[in-house]
Amino acid sequence: MKKERQATEGLVGLIPRAGALAARAGLDWFLLALIGMILLAWLFPELGVDREPLSLGDVANYGVSLIFFFYGLRLSPGKLKAGLSSWRLHLVVQLSTFVLFPLLILPLRSFFEGGEQELLWLGTFYLAALPSTVSSSVVMVSIAGGNIPAAIFNASISSLIGIFVTPLWMGLFLTSSSGAFDLGSVMGKLVLQVLLPVVLGIVLHRYWGVFAERNKKKLRIFDQVIILLIVFTSFCESFARDMFSGYSLLDLTALGAAMVGLFFLVYGITSAISRLLGFNREDRITAIFCGSKKSLVHGTVMSKVLFPDANIVGIILLPIMLYHALQLLASSVIAQATARKAGWEATGE
């Protein structure tokens, strides 16, 4: 009995330590909630499909516009101006985000064309065409000791560029394969649902910007709840139509391994380019962390517009969800290691 009690106490004692370790690695409640939403959608797909008494999909649509309105409120013109001068750094980050990623994935299309894994390739290509993250990029750059004003500028401008560039990449692919992609309609929806709220938020920044900054933690929780709702309804549609029946655990494991490989490949290429261009340490850190990230927020939001067939959206979102989790894990470890190395060099140890 005594041994059992000691074992139980030891297990309980491990919980807070495991929680702290998970938090340091980027495994916050949001990533666990994402897994929970998928599990819930698998168990009760009808909750996200039924429109009575309330359509969760419609709630998510309205929430998307609010996400980007609050995002615009938090965009400080002063911080953006502070990062304007490093044009070579900005060019490397944006080319990595919107050119390097897609060009790495595009040649692989022929290996998956016509098979059940084609949707996974499409989701991976969609991931490659997405803009960079905002908050996590700036946080990692800050931890590693990089150029924070440039990180804020690049993360923010990437979100705006992605509203136009992501549909262009996807339009090129979807039009050539199906001929059913209406680029003008898609751009119009994104302008109304995403760009217009951002612009409105920027205009009102001078009045409500302080409020938004003061409540940024609460607004971030709101953002995450809407994303969870989108993920839940998307997977409900896919599970209800039995869209995952053709994919094995091995397929999903291979996809996860491919996401890890993609992250480190882009990370290595961006790092090499930064060194060739003679970037200092701070700019090199910013280029690496901003240029290797992808935004789950934009991925979930744009999927509702770019892929009108709700049945496939759950599968399309799998790569970006895996990449999101893995990029947080990897970049968190790298950022902390970079910060420790800088400390050692500063003290001469």
Rank of each mutant, 00 (worst) to 15 (best):
L249K: 13
L249V: 12
L249H: 13
L250N: 13
L250I: 14
L250T: 15
D251E: 04
D251H: 10
L252D: 06
L252C: 09
L252S: 09
L252T: 13
L255K: 04
G256I: 12
G256T: 11
A257P: 02
A257T: 08
A258S: 08
M259L: 04
V260T: 10
G261Q: 03
G261L: 03
G261S: 00
G261F: 06
L262Y: 08
F263T: 10
F263L: 07
F264N: 13
F264P: 14
F264A: 14
L265K: 08
L265F: 11
L265G: 05
V266I: 04
Y267A: 01
G268A: 09
G268H: 11
T270F: 13
S271W: 08
S271Q: 11
A272R: 14
A272Y: 14
I273W: 08
I273F: 09
S274A: 09
S274T: 08
S274G: 06
R275Y: 13
R275M: 13
L276P: 11
L276R: 14
L277I: 04
L277A: 04
G278V: 06
G278C: 07
F279D: 03
F279I: 07
N280L: 08
N280R: 07
R281T: 14
E282S: 07
R284P: 12
R284H: 10
T286A: 02
T286L: 02
T286H: 00
A287M: 01
A287F: 01
A287C: 02
I288K: 12
I288Y: 09
F289K: 05
C290S: 08
C290A: 07
C290R: 04
G291W: 00
G291N: 01
S292H: 01
S292M: 00
K293Y: 04
K294D: 03
S295Q: 11
S295V: 07
L296D: 00
V297C: 10
V297R: 07
H298Q: 06
H298P: 06
G299I: 05
G299S: 06
V301M: 12
V301Y: 12
M302G: 00
K304M: 15
K304H: 12
L306T: 00
F307N: 00
